[in-house]
Structures are given as C-alpha cells and as structure tokens.
Amino acid sequence: MRPISPTLRSTLTNAWLAGPATLALLAFIFVPVTIVAVLSLTDYQFGARSFGWVGLDNYGKLFGSTLGRRAITNTLIYAAIVIPVSVGFGLLVAVGLFRMSDWAPRLSNVLRSVYFLPVAATLVAMSVSWQMMLHPSLGVVNQTLIAIGGTPQNWLSDRGLVLYTLAVIGIWQSIGYNMVLFLAGLAAIPADLYDAAEIDGAGGNWSRFWTVTWPLLGPTTLFVLVITATNAFRVFETVATLTKGGPAFASDTLVYALYREGFIYFKAGYASAITMVFFAVLLTLTLIQFRLVERRVHYR
C-alpha cells in the first residue's frame, strides 16, 4: 500500500488541527457580527416571518429618543465615575501595599487578597448582598446613617441616587483588579531609581512618588484606564440584579437596554443597533488597549 502523499497528509493534518477552531470562530463570532450589523438596519422582531429595511432609523431612534439617550448618558456617567475613582483608588492601594510589603509583608499580602476578593466573587450573589446592605430600613448602610444622625436614603429606588449607587458597587468590584495591575507595574520599577531620587534630594514620600513612581507607572496607568473603561461600558450584572434599569429608566445602561429591547421586547432590529453602538465604543477602547500592550512589549 502506498502511503498518501506527504503534502496531502500535511494539509489534512493542518485542517484537522486548526480547522475546528477556525470554523467555530467563523460560526460564533464573524458570521454573527455580520448578521447583527445587517439586522441593525431592519425592523426585524424575533419570531416574525419577515422584516423591512429601515435604513438608519434604529440608530436615529437610539440617539433621538429620550430613552435611547438616557441609556447612553447613563452609561457615560457611570463610566465617568467608575473609571477615575477605581483607577485612583487602585493606584493608592497598590502604592500603599507596595510600601507596606517592606515593613509588614504578611499583612500586605493579606490585604492584597482582601482587595482582590470582589474580582473572584460572583458579582450577582454579591449584588444580592449589596441589596440587603442598601435595604431602606433593614440595611446596614441606612442603620449606620441613622446611628450617626444622617438621613436614610432609598439607594436603589431614588431616581437621582440609583446610578451613583451602582457606580459605587462598580468601583468596589474593580479596585482590586486595578490594584493588581498597578502592583505589577510597581514591581517592575528598578529599585535603584529610588536610590537615585534619594541622592538627588527627592527622598520624601511625596516627591518620590512624583519624581519616580508616577512617571514610570505612566504606561501601566493608561493600560488600567482602558481596561477599566471597557469593563465599565459593559456594566450589566448589577443593573439586571438590582434595578432592571429602573426606577423609570434612571439606571438604564447600553448593555441592559440591549438585553431588554432584544430579549424582553424581542425588537431584534433595534437591539442590534444598540449592539453596534456598544461594539463601536468597545472596539475603539480595545484597539487602544492593543496598542498599549504592543508598546509595553516593545519598550521593555
């Protein structure tokens, strides 16, 4: 028996090894992206037998209607709070723990784990716990407020407050992640730079930070900012668990609107347009992130 030609054998092997993954990528990512782009130009509804072309109407509706605009502005406000605060706190905690590892390494490690805990925990379950903490009468937050003489609030049902409450939970969840990225950045700063700064007279905590730490953390900070931004724009779990976008759409966000319009109201066409807008934002952020990763690789 003559064996099949090596070239054919090699081709078959390649197809066998790389083919399944390639086909799966096409079927579950590239084809769907194309479909969603096309659907966003139609008035298709799940289950309908036909659909009509509506051009950019869905986008017009998203940017033109009060509800659509509210989802967009809510997401932007949420991101505008979560990004700076969680990155800032992440940096502070990282610098604090990094210093602490010199004189109390054990405690520093323990605290590090504590801050990281929300990243590993199931956000939905933790949201249920937050719900209990924020309970208007039984929650620890309001009880503490009363105890110190403050006014109790309806954290999750007050239109003016709800988005900020969600932002706090978002910050709570992402500080640990940012801290870990900053710690990695800090560990990469050569120790002799600090010695040099000390000799140059920049030995105090504050001046050390501004002359050495902060400039050298620049690339890490950019990277953390972008990652936090992508995560902030995806906010969904807390909204779905705690508010369902309410009250009166005061906490409606892009991804939740996409879910609601698409999978509760079955407006596939409109939901596709929301998807495309969401995609455009994330795509921009991810491309920036890729650039940053590339740069970090090149300059290190």
């Binding site: 992206v33 992508t230 596709s272």
Partner: peptide, 28 residues
C-alpha cells in the same frame, strides 16, 4: 501552512469582539 498569518489575523480580530455583540444572532 498557507494562510497561517491570515488565521492569526482572524484570531486577533476575534479578540476585538465582546460576547454581547454576538448574542442576538446566536440566540436567533
């Protein structure tokens, strides 16, 4: 193999797509 670079490009492109984007067509 032929198309190895293209396949890697495809994978990098796929990295850009968040899952939420594909939800509607996959559901359909």
């Amino acid at each position: 193999f032929k198309g190895r670079t293209a396949l890697f490009g495809l994978i990098l492109a796929a990295l850009l797509v968040p899952f939420h984007v594909t939800a509607i067509p996959v559901f359909l």
